[in-house]
């Protein structure tokens, strides 16, 4: 049976992990490689690296980091943040990224999704949607959630699939950072309206939140950053719990 994926997200700034706590088994939590290796050992199913600076000067640093990650990590990983063009994608894939995650650039220029899919295959195009429930509607936000759009989330999800997107990473801005649980309603609506994998993101605070999102929605993966980063929920403990709750887990 295909397993539900547990996906830690590492925020990268100037080639370093935005600082969390030091796990007992790693010397430097600011070193993305060390942290990533620790996640792999704990049983992470995939990793997402999000470059939160994403300035031109830092791009070269990121490419070098991706090369190092590709050498060290034996599970699939996605790189996102500040990707605007097919050239950006090409550099990351050549450096060894398995997938790239695009967000604002895809909203601005939807044909970028098709362009990447045609050149590198749908499987490597993750389209991230930041969504917010406002005035009774789920809509798409861009620029790290700072800018609203008039695009309805479900419409955009269907467009992403049509354009060749391989996967949707759905973050609910209402839930992100609350630790009150994933946005079950929109996650379920999106996963039911497309036939590509949907990863739920934003709001994970307890082990039960992952159980809920896998039982009550069609999400095939759950992504979180801080609860893993700060060691609040060790990945292995989360996976053991989900197994006892009869969720299909590696």
């Amino acid at each position: 049976m295909l397993k539900k994926r547990i996906i830690p997200c590492l925020d990268i700034k100037n080639g370093r992990t935005v600082k969390g706590i030091n796990f007992v088994d790693i010397k430097d939590a600011g070193d993305p490689i060390e942290l990533a290796k620790s996640y792999v050992e704990q049983g992470a199913d995939e990793l997402v690296f999000l470059d939160i600076t994403a300035t031109i000067e830092n791009r070269a640093t990121l490419i070098e980091l991706v090369k190092k990650i590709a050498l060290e990590i034996n599970i699939p990983f996605t790189v996102g943040g500040g990707i605007n063009s097919i050239e950006d994608v090409s550099k990351l894939i050549k450096a060894g990224a398995d997938k790239v995650s695009i967000n604002s650039a895809a909203v601005k220029n939807p044909s970028l999704i098709t362009e990447i899919a045609d050149q590198f295959g749908s499987q490597c195009v993750v389209v991230a949607i930041d969504t917010k429930f406002e005035n009774n509607e789920w809509k798409v936000f861009v620029h790290g959630g700072r800018t609203s759009t008039e695009i309805k989330t479900i419409y955009w999800a269907k467009q992403i699939e049509k354009l060749g997107g391989g996967e949707i990473l759905l973050t609910s801005m209402n839930n992100d950072g609350t630790k009150a649980g994933f946005a079950l309603d929109i996650t379920d609506q999106v996963s039911k309206s497309v036939n590509i994998p949907v990863i739920a993101s934003g709001g994970a605070g307890t082990k039960a939140h992952f159980k809920d999102v896998f039982e009550k929605t069609g999400a095939t993966g759950g992504l979180a950053a801080s609860i893993f980063h700060y060691g609040e929920i060790p990945i292995q403990m989360l996976k053991n719990y989900l197994k006892t709750e009869k969720i299909a887990i590696r």
């Binding site: 994926r5 199913d45 996967e167 036939n195 095939t220 993966g221």
Partner: peptide, 13 residues
């Protein structure tokens, strides 16, 4: 066939 999510993506036994 499109009865489930395609591609088959992830970990399987």
């Amino acid at each position: 066939p499109n009865r489930d999510i395609v591609p088959h993506m992830g970990w399987n036994n």
